Amino acid sequence: MISKKRPKLWVKFKPDIGVEEDEIDIETIAPNFYFLGDQENPSLTSTYLSDTMYDGQTFVHAQYQPTTITANFYLRFKDWYGFRLAKHDIVRFFGRKGVYRIRTDTHRGMVRYVRTNTFDISPAETEAKYSLFSIGFTNYCGLGYSLGTSSDLKTYDSELWQMGMNLPNMEDIPYEFSDYDGLNTFKIYNPSDVVIDPYYQQSELKITMNVGVNSLVELDNLTTGDTYTVKTGNVSTNKIVIDGIETTINGVASTSATNYGVITLVQGWNQFRVTSSYKPVTSIAFDFPFVYLPS
């Protein structure tokens, strides 16, 4: 008898060719089909350089590798024909070419992007009327991501957020600032388990600023030492969007107007300063998903 209190798995599929589907409860794809839980562990490797003149090796860099997520399932059926029909329903869903976004009720606010590995579904034994099997997924990023981003409201009664996401308890963590007298310093909190780095790790990070005409804007992360500068255009109001390592001004590609600087965010609080040579920066907003290690 399967327990009524079981873990839940929600899946959203995006085919390599086709339209992204809505998220579903995985137990709806076949009758008497139940999710029993999953398991994943981080995979961290380090690269070292050898020199024939010296003992040992020199550390070069560390990298999170793809991980394997093992999801366990239980299938009950009345006879062989029922088994084959249910097996086809499961294979038809999980045997496709594309990316599956998965999340469980233990990590409601965190998602992982995976592709399916080869799997086998067989009765537990001869003439058995149930099957216990596992499906392996490759988490090709090796990391998990928040379902929401920093621009979403931080309330635990929302599906987007949960305990265990490193969010400060009872502390305001704004990601948007507006001051028509001119912004100066502010703090940005990164609750991720890792550094947000748009250049080396291709992390998602979008920064939007509004400033007036012909200003040289400088944005400094005083915690990391990162400096970004950009020269605005000859219009009364300029919308600067730093999307990763690319910049647009009023929707026009303008990376060449910058110093090619990259803003990163270390874990925890990051102290920022923004200055402008002529017109003040009137608003600034940070939008990025939080990134977590497998657990």
Rank of each mutant, 00 (worst) to 15 (best):
G37P: 09
L293Q: 08
I69M: 10
Y200S: 14
W269T: 12
R6W: 02
E176N: 10
P7K: 05
T229Y: 05
D89G: 00
P168E: 11
L293K: 12
I2L: 08
G225P: 08
Y113H: 12
M53L: 13
S134G: 00
K12M: 10
N190V: 09
L265Q: 03
A128R: 09
G37A: 11
K97M: 13
A71N: 08
V19I: 15
K206F: 00
D172M: 13
S215K: 06
V194L: 15
R96T: 05
D22M: 10
P198I: 05
F83V: 05
A285P: 01
I102C: 06
S254P: 04
F290S: 06
I26Q: 02
D220E: 15
S283Q: 08
S236Y: 14
K87C: 09
M165Y: 03
G251H: 07
L216A: 13
F59P: 04
N169Q: 10
A124H: 11
V211E: 03
N221H: 11
P15Q: 06
F186Y: 15
D193R: 09
L75F: 06
P42W: 04
Y175P: 00
T67C: 14
N41A: 15
T47Q: 13
S46Y: 07
D22S: 14
V60N: 05
K129C: 07
I29K: 03
N221S: 10
P42K: 04
N210L: 04
L183P: 02
F288Q: 02
L132W: 01
K4E: 09
S50K: 15
I29E: 04
Y199W: 08
V111L: 00
K129F: 09
W161T: 03
G244R: 05
V291S: 01
P31K: 10
V266P: 00
G244L: 03
M165H: 02
E125K: 11
E176I: 05
G261A: 12
A86P: 04
Y278M: 07
L147W: 03
P31D: 14
L36V: 05
D55G: 15
R101Y: 04
F177V: 04
V211L: 07
P31N: 13
I245E: 06
R92M: 02
Y292A: 03
F94Y: 10
